[in-house]
């Protein structure tokens, strides 16, 4: 069995390799970067892809450019995450089984929902628990659902709006979210990026916040809507500027 492990932290990668090799008859290829992982997935055949969600070197460089204002929504590539690898593994070679390997920190929250809701990822395993990766890989090989109880907490409660219902109903509103994730906060500047007037952006903010509050009732309904929406977009810029998310929803 050939396993592709996409992980940028050396210690975590080494522990995973040891764990897998000790328990399973497998050959593990470690790749620290999602770009290289995409290339390897197109060139080579793997049975399992174990994928981390965010990659520090890539995220730090993208964040630097974002803060300098040099990122454009029309750039050929936005922020690259494990979602790209999960998607490539599913589309390039459908027989590759995928395991999302993450601790689910707060800036990965929406990525995990996207992986489940839009990419159909059914095997999720936390990084910090020894021995659980082997169980997850076995479940993936057997094509069974397997989500660790701790990561299952990220699944939305019944009746909660989905990501699609909240963020992907309108391409204009999604573009507004993305513009704010770029660090643009004024209605006129957002409108310029999106291609609408400042008034359209301002008038749409109440509706955007209403959807956000339905999705995350912890967000406040008090005060001006733009401030709350900007705060949420800034906290979750990795998701709104994710290259794979953009590929799915323009």
């Amino acid at each position: 069995m050939r396993v592709l492990l996409v992980e940028d932290e050396g210690v975590a990668a080494q522990m995973a390799v040891t764990e897998l090799r000790d328990a399973l008859p497998c050959e593990v290829t470690v790749v620290p970067d999602p770009v290289e992982a995409l290339t390897r997935l197109h060139r080579e055949r793997f049975d399992i892809a174990v994928v981390d969600m965010l990659y520090q070197a890539h995220s730090v460089e993208f964040e630097r450019r974002r803060r300098l204002g040099s990122v454009r929504l029309t750039d050929p590539r936005l922020h690259l995450s494990g979602l790209a690898v999960l998607h490539a593994a599913r589309t390039a070679t459908p027989e590759v089984r995928t395991v999302l390997w993450t601790n689910g920190e707060s800036n990965r929250r929406l990525h995990m929902l996207f992986a489940r809701e839009q990419l159909g990822c059914r095997v999720m395993c936390p990084k910090d628990a020894v021995g659980k990766l082997v169980t997850a890989v076995r479940a993936a090989v057997d094509e069974q659902d397997h989500v660790d109880p701790v990561l299952r907490m990220y699944f939305p409660p019944a009746n909660a709006p989905t990501l699609a219902e909240t963020f992907f109903t309108s391409s204009t509103r999604l573009a507004v979210w993305r513009a704010m994730a770029l660090g643009v906060h004024e209605h006129a500047a957002i409108g310029k990026i999106v291609g609408v007037t400042a008034g359209t952006v301002r008038r749409g903010m109440d509706a955007i916040r209403a959807k956000l509050v339905a999705f995350d009732p912890g967000c406040t309904e008090d005060g001006p809507p733009t401030a709350e929406v900007v705060r949420y977009a800034s906290q979750n810029w990795q998701f709104f500027l994710d290259d794979t998310v953009r590929g799915f929803h323009r």
């Binding site: 929250r109 929406l110 109880p149 907490m153 990220y154 939305p156 995350d216 912890g218 967000c219 406040t220």
Partner: peptide, 14 residues
């Protein structure tokens, strides 16, 4: 040991 997981999705708390 968690016998069941509380599904909370993307909820945040002030």
């Amino acid at each position: 040991t968690l016998l069941s997981s509380p599904e909370m999705g993307a909820l945040t708390i002030p």
